[in-house]
């Protein structure tokens, strides 16, 4: 029977046996990588996130408090690293890629996040939603739509709808209250609906086997 996260952590703290830490890496590396890849849209950066996340997990293992779940803790470290990379990316790209998006009507603070963001042109340069025919193209359309979201909304959408974390867990991971998480998820999905509308109009999306 697999040990729980808490039991693995306790054993590793007590015995310093690397196999316990290894078990934690094996358990979470896939989820961390997938989430980081969906948030960042870049495999190399996602790999860097996984690497650095577990380095920090190991370094800060003595500080880990059992009150919070290990899952939330490790995702919080990974999310923080994603945020750092996104900020660095924005600094590198400078303000040239920052543009005002008139389509995003600022209904409130959260929706306003969409009005000034890095507007990638992937949706225009790649296949349009209406032209997506096969699943690879479907995937590309969805990925492109995800990239259109503001970073904060995309992170919450990925953590909830792809990783299946609860609002409370996401609140702890991103450091926002539940209302903010709820709001970011709502407006993130709303924008995805708008972006995918042409795609939905042409064909139903049949969920692919995971």
């Amino acid at each position: 029977m697999d040990l729980t996260d808490g039991a693995l952590i306790e054993s590793f703290r007590r015995t310093k046996d690397p196999s316990h830490f290894k078990a934690l890496v094996q358990r979470y590396q896939g989820r961390i990588y997938n989430a980081a890849f969906r948030i960042l849209g870049n495999s190399e950066e996602a790999e860097e996130v996984v690497q650095d996340t577990f380095v920090k997990v190991h370094q800060n293992m003595p500080k880990f408090q059992r009150q919070s779940s290990f899952s939330s803790w490790v995702f919080r470290i990974a999310h923080n690293h994603c945020v750092d990379l996104l900020r660095a990316r924005q600094r590198r790209s400078g303000f040239s890629l920052l543009s005002y998006d008139p389509q995003a009507a600022p209904a409130d603070d959260e929706s306003a996040e969409g009005s000034l963001g890095v507007v990638s042109q992937l949706a225009d340069s790649g296949p349009s939603p209406a032209q997506a025919l096969d699943f690879k193209e479907q995937e590309a359309v969805i990925e492109a739509s995800l990239k259109e979201l503001p970073d904060t909304q995309r992170a919450v959408v990925v953590l909830h709808d792809i990783e299946g974390l609860s609002y409370q867990e996401i609140s702890e991971i991103v450091g926002a209250n539940l209302g903010t998480v709820r709001s970011r998820l709502h407006y993130g999905r709303l924008k995805l609906r708008q972006l995918l509308e042409p795609y939905f109009a042409h064909q139903d999306v049949s969920p692919a086997p995971r």
């Binding site: 290894k22 590396q29 495999s43 996602a46 190991h58 969805i142 709808d161 969920p207």
Partner: peptide, 24 residues
Amino acid sequence: VVATLRALPRVKPPRDFSQDLDKL
């Protein structure tokens, strides 16, 4: 929308990080 997002295939890491435990 949720079903569409969940339809996305899970992306697997290019390597097994647990094999490079010394680096971690």
